[in-house]
Design a protein around this nucleic acid. Structure first.
Lengths: 240, 240
DNA sequence: AGAAGTGCTCACGATTCGATGAACTCCGCG
DNA sequence: CGCGGAGTTCATCGAATCGTGAGCACTTCT
């Protein structure tokens, strides 16, 4: 069931709006992006794209420059005017690229046709990563989370109990950080699956097992957890 | 969105001179560079650019090749004749760029139009990092980095282990310095690719291989690295 | 007490990830 | 023009990790 984890360790699958009137292109792009675990929406002209993007902004827009009703640049400009949505431009190849160079600079990145799907998905991921910020999510919170004798350094990607280093796997780490960032809030397993794993659906026992392994490592008495607590009939909650 | 700090953590913001007669280009470039925390100055033709750069040398020059009064190559040549200012060339797209790259021996890097602002800023940072040292009076941080029996002299471009000189290639050196400048911080491969290589995207196995070679040279037991450590599911981290 | 619902544990198979070795490209040099 | 070093890409291998299903334990309700 190998869904590739798209980008950010702790995120629902990013939605991407693909705007291209060429059916062949948009279909291929869609297929490849979905294979990488993204949720893809398609629009065939500028006006509709803009409307849809403004109504429900996706995480990223892949935008052909030459499309009906509103050209790509105009769409990009208007998008940017209201919401800081990352944009990747698809530009035709050839000399005209020189003329439009100034215009297309509004985009976060560009890919010139013909392009390899691999390159496009790579760039999509790169731009999303940039938009999400580096491992240290900038101002969105402290880099070291503390609770009791627990210390979690989100930058160094390390966790300590009583000062002792505990080796957490990537998932365990993500799970712990997510819980610690929302102390005392109860999460249903489905929520955690979505917010930590990025799965829209799936076996909730996956969460159970990971919680168990996590407790095994960070709780003094894993059978009587003081931090990662069970909320019966609901899910789990982090207790500081 | 947090302002990314450019390159060195404690230095004054590097000043960058952007030389381009296309207003659209220079404005967009300026905006993106400023967003990254640089101080940007703009010149619209070669003579003025040269004059200004010589009067008060910036940390880096971003130079379009086709500009009025003095072409980019000439400006670059004269600049380099007097001051070792790093230069990034903006070249027209295509095969032409390939021919030019041979000529522009003076430039530290080049970016061909159309380019993504991402790529430009990434390369700017990479070049600045690489250039940090030669003419660094006070701002650019320590010139000798130490960790255990490791000594890295960023000015002399030398690395020693137990006092013994180890021959590192340019990339290996840059990689090591970058990691050492952010001790204990975990980097994803994609981040390193961007911050050390200046690639907006690419094959992450490149990083893997270079890390391996670096370990081969600086670690006492390369199979059990004590400094350049693996963070499973994430990337690498430097341990002092 | 019995039954149904919910969470916990364990072990197995599939997948993913990093290390490794080697091929290949690109230059500069003799 | 071949050589050699640096850098990049590719294929393979082994190990760590992950997801799943089945059985057990505990809670709650009838």
């Amino acid at each position: 069931m190998g869904h590739n984890r798209p980008v950010s360790p702790t995120a629902a699958p990013p939605r991407i709006l693909v705007v291209d009137d060429d059916l062949t292109v948009s279909e291929v792009v869609t297929r490849y992006l979905e294979r990488e675990g993204f949720v893809v929406d398609v629009a065939y002209d500028g006006a509709i794209a803009l409307e849809r993007a403004l109504a429900d902004p996706p995480e990223l827009v892949v935008l052909d420059l030459m499309i009906p009703s509103l050209d790509g640049f105009e769409v990009c400009r208007r998008l940017r005017a209201t919401a800081p949505v990352p944009v990747i431009m698809l530009t035709a190849r050839g000399d005209e690229a020189d003329r439009i160079v100034g215009l297309e600079l509004g985009a976060d990145d560009y890919v010139s046709k013909p392009f390899s799907p691999r390159e496009l998905t790579a760039r999509v991921k790169a731009v999303l990563r940039r938009a999400a910020g580096p491992l240290a999510p900038g101002g969105t919170g402290p880099t070291v989370l503390c609770a009791g004798s627990l210390e979690v350094d989100t930058v160094a990607h390390e966790a300590r109990r009583e000062g002792e280093l505990v080796a957490l796997t990537a998932r365990e780490f993500d799970l712990l950080v997510h819980l610690m960032r929302h102390p005392r809030r109860a999460f249903r397993r489905e929520e955690l699956l979505e917010q930590v794993w990025g799965f829209a659906y799936g076996d909730t026992s996956t969460v159970t097992v990971h919680v168990r392994r996590l407790r095994e490592k960070i709780e003094a008495d894993p059978a009587r957890p003081r931090h990662v607590c069970t909320v019966w009939g609901v899910g789990y909650r982090f207790e500081p």
